[in-house]
Structures are given as C-alpha cells and as structure tokens.
Amino acid sequence: MSDLPLIQADRAVPPPAAATSTGGRRRRLRLLSRTDRVVITLMVLVPLLLVTAFVWLPALATVVLSGTDWDGIGPLNEIDFVGARNYSDVVNIYPPFVPAIQHNLLWLAVLFVVATPFGMFLAVLLDKELRGSRFYQTALYLPVVLSLALIGFVWQLLYSRDQGLINAVFGSNIDWYGDSNVNIWAVMLASGWRHVGYIMLLYLAGLKGVDPSLREAAAVDGASESRTFFRVVFPVLRPINIIVLVVTVIESLRAFDLVWVVNKGRNGLELISALVTQNVVGEASRIGFGSALATIMLVVSLVFITIYLATVMRENRE
C-alpha cells in the first residue's frame, strides 16, 4: 500500500487530526478516514466471499465428491466414501479417458501452433489499412459472434456424409463426423475458424495502440517490414501477447460445446470436459466418478494457471 490516501484524497482526514483522535502507533492507516476503511473492507470482503462461495467451495466439493460413489439421489449423509477407487477406475478401465487427454493436448497444440499465429498474421495484415479491410474484419469476426452450438450446426451442413456440401461438391465419400480418425480434425477446423477471428480482434486492438513513432523510427533506421514487426512491434505488444496466450490455453481447456453438439463427445471426439458432462449432468448421474474426472481437469488447469501467475508476478517484480 502506498503512503497516499487510496480513495478521494480530498476528503481524507489530514494526518495530524487523525493522530490526535487515535493517538499514535499506526500512522499509515490513520491516513484513511473511517468511511474509507469501511469501503475498503467491504471491497475486499465482498469479492472474497463471492469467490469463496462460487469458486473455491464448489471446487473443494468436487474434490470431496470425487472420493465417493454418490449417484445424486438421497440425502448427503448417506454418501459412501470409496477412497481413490474412482481415480483408479478412470485410469484403468475407462476407455475414453486416454483419448480424451490426448485430444485435449492435441487441441492445445493446434490452437497454439496454427490458429493463434494465423489470427495474429491476419491482424497484422488488416492493420495495414487495406482496401475493404472493414469487410474482412467483419467476415473474420463473424464466427466469434455465433454461438458454438450454431457453428456445430453450420458445419454439420458441410460435413454430413450423405447430404453435406463437401462430399457433394467433391464427390468424395468421407465420413467427416463419424470416422474417428478424421472427425477430430474436422471439428478442430471448425473451432479454429472461430478462434482465428477472436485472436485477430484481440491482436488488432493491440496493434492499433502501438505508437506510430516507433515504426517510423525503425523505418528511418532502415529496418525491413518483418524485422520491424519482430524486433519492435512484437516486444512492445507483450501484454497483448500474454492475453492471447492465456486465451488460447483457456479456449483449448474449455473446448466442449462443439464436440458436444457434434456427437456428445464420443467416438473420436472425447475431451475431458465432455466426459465430465456425460457422467455428471444428465440421467447418468455418476457424480463421484464425474467429479474424479473434473478434479483431474482442475489439476491440469492449475498447471497452466501456475505458469501464468508465475510469469505475471515475476514481471511485476522486475
């Protein structure tokens, strides 16, 4: 906390007056009036309570439930604890689990290596104020506005084996959504289509904010276009780069809607999030087993969150 009053400096009680009223050990706090302290306490407490109630308690409950075989019916005191059985079942006898992990990692890799760089590339192109660049922006951003459920439907019209556009135009016979070797790529194309637009918008916003004098200086120094981008613009955009990176990781861990719309995350489209939903939501109600899957997903997410926080904190210290 700085020495300056945090809120409404003009109304804060001047230090001497405060000193006389409470008589002296903690000078800094006395910089704040009583109202300020109440406000600050509330501002800390309310979000803290909300986060605890809606994030940490459910997360904790998930971890606890993952040790039970609860089926969602009956009072809580009848829950039986089964130890780590759910976890050993997940790893040993649940066939969709391993493919799900692989698909999640594949999803992350493809978004990271292909979709995100492509979106950034498009943003750089659009930043050049091409003719009709607004049209391109709209066209590329359009998929982001559509809900993923709708996107699933749109691509179904293209991908359907018997009635789809792709097979009709090319006379091919590929079972885009049904063949488990093909469908993950087909779905990732649809998902990437959306992701590219999203990244493009984020990055374009960043590029518009770059001080033009930096580029002019680079140009005066005789740097080529690509050298200017990689040596000057890209480092300047570090905050945006981190946001883009985090969005990419979040999107790939959250990947769910599209595979759920296509075939409820089965047959080649297994993802951890889809398996959680299959087991917990719906009639199945394998709450304990599904919670074990959710806990595994939580742990995987924590790895990325830790890396992200570590990076951000190190940056703040510097």
Binding site: T138, Y141, A205
Partner: peptide
Amino acid sequence: AEYLARLVPPSVAGINRRSLLAGAAG
C-alpha cells in the same frame, strides 16, 4: 471480449460492438 472491445479504436469499434451486442442478445 466486451472489455477488450472498449480498447478498440473507433475505426474498428463500430461494427464489432454492434455485432457483440447481437451476440450478447443471442
């Protein structure tokens, strides 16, 4: 997205904010 849309300069913002609203309505 909405937060970031506010960062977008006016040249880009017009179209996208409107479409964002449409998306939000959806």
